[in-house]
Amino acid sequence: MGKPRQIKDFLKKMSLDTATIRRIASLARIRLDESEVQQAQAEINGILGWIEQLQEVETEGVEPMAGGSPVAQARARLRPDVVTDGGQADAILANAPDRQGEYFGVPKVVE
């Protein structure tokens, strides 16, 4: 199992630069202050370095697991085409931070 020592070694081998950290944060829509970028970089690199050990597993020809079912032949169930839901605009809007009449409000989007 990975030990913190080994993790630090990995860290040296492959690590994300701060630009990549910023790009990930941007993709994930999480605002990062400059000071947070450094910390996130160290932590994420530590974790990624530790995860790296997976690459040593031989997985040639292995069918990846699809979902979490312990049964390999799991298949989706299909439901009948019947209207059973909706007609509850108030409940849908009840938790909205900015309800605008029957709509959700957001800052104006320019397409």
Partner: peptide, 27 residues
């Protein structure tokens, strides 16, 4: 932290190396 790691391992060019690999090891 976990959202950022998850975003990274799914991002373009890394899916096969991380998520797909992990689902294979999982199998």
């Amino acid at each position: 932290r976990r959202i950022m790691i998850g975003t990274y391992v799914l991002s373009a060019g890394y899916y096969d190396a991380y998520y797909l690999k992990a689902q294979k090891v999982r199998a």
